[in-house]
Design a protein around this nucleic acid. Sequence first.
DNA 1: GTGAAAGCGCTAACAA
DNA 2: TTGTTAGCGCTTTCAC
Lengths: 345, 345
Amino acid sequence: MVRARPEAGRDVSVVRMEDVAKLAGVSMKSVSNVIHNYAHVSVGMRTRVQQAIDELGYRPNVLGRRLVTGRTGMLTLAFSDVSLPYFSELARVVSSEAGRRGYRLLLEQTDGTLEGERAVVSSSESGLVDGVIFQPSIMSTIEIAQHRQDDPLVLLGEGAAPLSVDHVMIDNTGAAEDATSHLISSGRRRIGFVGQEDIKQSATSSQRLIGYQQALERAGIRVDSSLLMASHAISSQDAAVAVSRALDRGVKFDGLVCRDDLAAIGALRALQERGLSVPGDVAVIGWDNIAMAACTYPSLSTVAPDTKQLAVVALDMLEERIAGYAGLGRHRLVDYALVLRESAP
Amino acid sequence: MVRARPEAGRDVSVVRMEDVAKLAGVSMKSVSNVIHNYAHVSVGMRTRVQQAIDELGYRPNVLGRRLVTGRTGMLTLAFSDVSLPYFSELARVVSSEAGRRGYRLLLEQTDGTLEGERAVVSSSESGLVDGVIFQPSIMSTIEIAQHRQDDPLVLLGEGAAPLSVDHVMIDNTGAAEDATSHLISSGRRRIGFVGQEDIKQSATSSQRLIGYQQALERAGIRVDSSLLMASHAISSQDAAVAVSRALDRGVKFDGLVCRDDLAAIGALRALQERGLSVPGDVAVIGWDNIAMAACTYPSLSTVAPDTKQLAVVALDMLEERIAGYAGLGRHRLVDYALVLRESAP
DNA sequence: GTGAAAGCGCTAACAA
DNA sequence: TTGTTAGCGCTTTCAC
């Protein structure tokens, strides 16, 4: 009744649907009906089958089901690095929301490498997942459009986004302008920008820098490139180094717009090491509203993207693609808020 | 040649191995041989097949392959919440190490609920993943042992661990003793403990508290329960509240051992709000060595588990189970180090 | 070295 | 309401 499956060295007895059917003295169809709670099943059948299932400890093998339905119930979530707080918090939200819709999440890290990003966009296998949510770091629009398979795909973030592909982000330029304007309206006049990449600037940093510049210009403040404190990598340490160096060079500023909360935390540290007070001497504003932003001392004012909405919109679009929608790429903005805490009240 | 597959509303043409075989004028076996780089394939065959693959843009469907091999190449990594820094950093390490071994990682969050943890241990479906790595938060040893399916399973962390199941952790009691002893040897005498759960204490907190107590007793210091600052949840905010309350009550201390780095960061904030200096007035030591621990001001001394080793050992054991090993549970300790930074030099 | 064919475990169209 | 059966796309003996 129960077959031994000699598989990769294991020799595990596996109960199959047929075994259940035999034990219950019914057909596989009836077992399937019971498992899927098909409406038109007699009570006697249902109990008899359930009994056999329980007795054998039968668990349906998803692979068989998937092969025939063609659906896997899995989604890939891909970005550079889960250990970055913004991504881990995003993963939590997307995973929860995907779970509510009956999907499980496959995590894929690209390490921000071109190779890793290419692997996400053009997998050499098919059928693994029903769709992909991907926040590219360095891949170009053209490359994404070229390498793309026909697997349903939704892009996140400020990076490349071909017209043909769905895309969700917040208005980065606008938000950066808001953040900078907030500092200006609280009386700051020498406002620096911290944490953009020093070598090859990401689209994220570019857009935020543009908003920063626009706010300054609108307020009639001259943009001073000595106030741009580039960082070697996206990390608090590197941002701290950048701010320290600026201080060493004698650069004066009374406000800092940071590319993200990690950079802001690095800036906080660099300022405090010099005995500068935040926000007394320098107001600091971050980006992402990671959990830690509320717990630093002083706590961080920050741009808070609505990640819940981001996840919902992205999953909505992905599900439409999975269901067969084949129109042009939709490009949607989701909300953000300026969360004001101690570092820039 | 290429079939249209009417699937869930989609109508996507899918290239199958048979299509490639037909176009190349060979059998499916030959196509399969080429795909798997089977050694004994003539050059002519190889190029002819490869040409057909390229021409059709054929990508093998993993579901078909998996159904016959019985292996999915996927592992589940399960714990309460990816957005907690320790878990997200662990996920990064495990994901990388799993990737090196040819596995992809399915992320499962339990939210620390019994329901979520039960779902991990006793899935109603089989065949989804080849194995499970799971860090339980609240499930009891007995329940894990009972609910366990025969899917390969490795447990992480200080929680429940039945004898029958593989398990990896660091020596929590020892590490807590080391951390506490470090504070004692730097002259601290009134040392508090911060961040254990206030309602139902986790195994993690218990073990760390035991080590803390042992170190004090060994040094001939009386354990003072007013120095135990329980926290409502595992978060910086709650730890900050706990420390603030203790300060309000007039509790005096010159050192704090924290359940984890989040608690330590909360403690830092609570102390700084009162104008207390760290480590001048109070030395603080955390646990986990999350990335942020190096960037706080002052930076955090902390217990650093060797998560790389943890991942390697866990995956080694899991792969042995997957390969068929069916012996008793192995319980292994991995290394940790005391990383000394500014908060407790 | 290559081809033919029998499944892997399940679903669903069609019959009864 | 339940049973029969033909695949889903691939791997893998076993012949040739």
